[in-house]
């Protein structure tokens, strides 16, 4: 079955959310996620990422639009829809006095699954928590607590896992550890939807990226395609001798002369029909400008994201 004809694991149709007081947190959001995808929802603080997750998971009331999980409406078929979802919240919210084993077992029961020590053991082992199974949560480090929240979300074997800002406020080592956890989840076939404002995170993990700003989903795109389409490249020409001014015959090029006058930077569009590089190099040679190195740099997802959000504003 091709991807286009496959039933989506998550379908969001024309969803808006207005909180009491009139604040419109989401505006006519449409989104479809396929099974097994890793989807990153990017957006600045207050963009509507958590509101969208809250609506899907039942933490906020949906009053405009429709959301289905594996074909089940989150309102009229909430038993079936929510049973397929695991949620890892942004905050480290744990029952401090419970043991790791008990709290993960509690989550499984809460989601309507009978006791199954084999599943709990497998989940804890996959997250390197099994040795800590009898520890009280208050004795665990921040990283371990974050893993416990993931274990709780996986205890009922969900098909979709939401990670709301999984690495917000954690150190670099732990952030990389979380990336490894998501990479492992990919192998199990679980669909992962994560919200983040760390571009690096989306760049490392996601298959597709959605950018949300001021409650509007302004773009959904394959990550590589997004970078290809919107990515600008910079060509830096390191000169052998200082250049006093950009030659007149190069004035129509988007060229910047460095302050030390020892390099020229040319910005160009990677998907333009002609980049103009060959002509630029020929003209430089004709003008007697000699260079000793050429460096190219692809714009990062972060630069793309900032550009999109600024355009949206």
């Amino acid at each position: 079955m091709s991807e286009t004809t496959q039933k989506p694991i998550l379908s969001i149709e024309n969803v808006s959310k207005t909180y009491e007081g009139g604040y419109k947190a989401l505006k006519n959001v449409d989104l479809t996620i396929q099974k097994g995808e890793i989807f990153a929802l990017l957006g600045p603080n207050g963009a509507g990422k958590t509101t969208l997750i809250s609506l899907i998971c039942g933490l906020a009331r949906l009053n405009e639009g429709r959301i289905t999980v594996d074909g089940h409406d989150v309102k009229s078929e909430f038993y079936k829809a929510r049973g397929k979802i695991g949620l890892v919240p942004q905050e480290l919210t744990t029952d401090a006095f419970e043991s790791v084993w008990n709290t993960v077992s509690f989550s499984r029961g809460l989601f309507g699954k009978p006791k199954d020590p084999t599943v709990i053991e497998r989940v804890l082992k996959s997250l390197a928590l099994y040795e800590k199974r009898d520890n009280k949560l208050r004795t665990l480090s921040g990283g371990m607590k974050r893993r416990v929240l993931i274990a709780k979300a996986l205890a009922h074997e969900p098909e979709v896992l939401f990670l709301d800002e999984p690495t917000a406020g954690v150190d670099v080592a732990l952030r990389r550890e979380m990336w490894n956890v998501v990479a492992d989840l990919r192998q199990t076939g679980v669909t992962v939807i994560l919200t983040t404002h760390y571009i690096e995170e989306a760049e490392m993990m996601a298959d597709r990226i959605g950018v949300i700003s001021k409650g509007e989903l302004i773009l959904v795109e394959d990550k590589n395609e997004l970078m290809r389409k919107l990515g600008h490249k910079e060509l830096t020409i390191v000169l052998q001798e200082p250049l006093q001014a950009i030659p007149d015959n190069l004035s129509h090029y988007d060229l910047q002369l460095a302050e030390d006058r020892m390099s020229l930077t040319y910005s160009y569009d990677t998907h333009a029909e002609r980049t103009g590089i060959a002509t630029l190099m020929r003209l430089l040679a004709e003008d007697g400008v000699r260079f000793r190195d050429i460096v190219t740099k692809q714009s990062s997802l972060e630069e793309i994201f900032v550009g999109l959000v600024e355009d949206g504003q």
Binding site: C57, L59, T94
Partner: peptide
């Protein structure tokens, strides 16, 4: 108060 209510509210529980 602790924030753990999210789990109950997001579970398939009436």
């Amino acid at each position: 108060f602790a924030g753990t209510i999210y789990e109950v509210l997001s579970a398939p529980v009436s």
